[in-house]
Design a protein around this nucleic acid. Sequence first.
DNA 1: AACCCGTGGTG
DNA 2: TCACCAAGGGT
Length: 359
Amino acid sequence: MFSPGKINHFHSQLLNWFARQKREMPWRKNLDPYRILVSEFMLQQTQVKTVIPYFNKWMRSFPTVKRLAAAKESDVLKHWEGLGYYSRARNLLRSAIQIQNDHSGKVPDTFQEMMRLPGVGRYTAGAVLSIAFDQKVPVLDGNVKRVLSRLMLLNENGSNKKSETRLWETMESLLPDKSCGDFNQAFMELGATVCLPQNPLCEECPLKKLCKAKLSGKQELYPPKKTAAKISKIKVSAAVIFRKGHVYIQKRKGKGLMGGLWEFPGGKREAGETEEECLRREIKEELGVNIRIGEKIVTHRHSYTRFRVTLDVFQCRIHSGKLSPTECDEWKWVKPEELDQFPFPAANVKIIKLLNKNT
DNA sequence: AACCCGTGGTG
DNA sequence: TCACCAAGGGT
């Protein structure tokens, strides 16, 4: 680590840099713990720039724990639409209810209580406690891991449990006695803006004279790359079924992939099937009806974490059979112009925009 | 421990 | 087109 003299230099370099360079963010306007909590949920695996408009809209609709705790899940998910990892939204709602019921609406200020909130792990607990409550608690996110591993030439064997533990212990040992919220944010902001994954801007870095990677010219080698997971490619056919000026939508089951969101029915194309054969089979399986397939509305590509989808969307009508959906929580016939009242995954939002442009 | 969970930007 | 990755958590 650092000698006593060096750690003071390290703290002042980093905190002075942060005081000069920190970006404006809406959740930095004040230290309301609820605002910090919401921002940290949204920022999980999501970049600042993406989060900002969602955060502002969220705060207009759900300005307090009490207001969020009283909200309907569908409204909450609608505000999360397009942000991804939708279990975060469901967990944030559950956390608000828990805070309202068990903590009189005040975000708890102890590590143990924070960790009991659904969707709050060690990172989020540390972030809220240090930023909102000025407590001496570390954080460790993707940025911090990268900065730290370069600064100290750590994590040489990739991200196993042992090196994770070492990284947490190191962050804890580096915390200053005061301004831990700023210190933690500075570490993350340095990673996000200077100590970049590729082509780090070492000449602009306030820690360049302390950084072992920079001093040895090994910045690009740290942290070591993890072996990338295989991305599979699938083709999906989806149906926009029209009936008397309405279209059919269904709500996905509560947990799992995009749980609680609405969608157009359809499914994965199997080997040897045409787009239309796939759609007829899927709709028969899911809804129990035979359809007549009209013209293709659009083909979209969409990428998820572990697979890429080519989505073929068709206009359809029910030809025969009794509608009896089996795979979903709920289903509805709605007017096209009402579709934007329901939360949909991003791939479906593209379709809806097209529908409402053409009608 | 390994895998699941979204989306958009970047080069 | 494609790999990489982001203020991670749950199981």
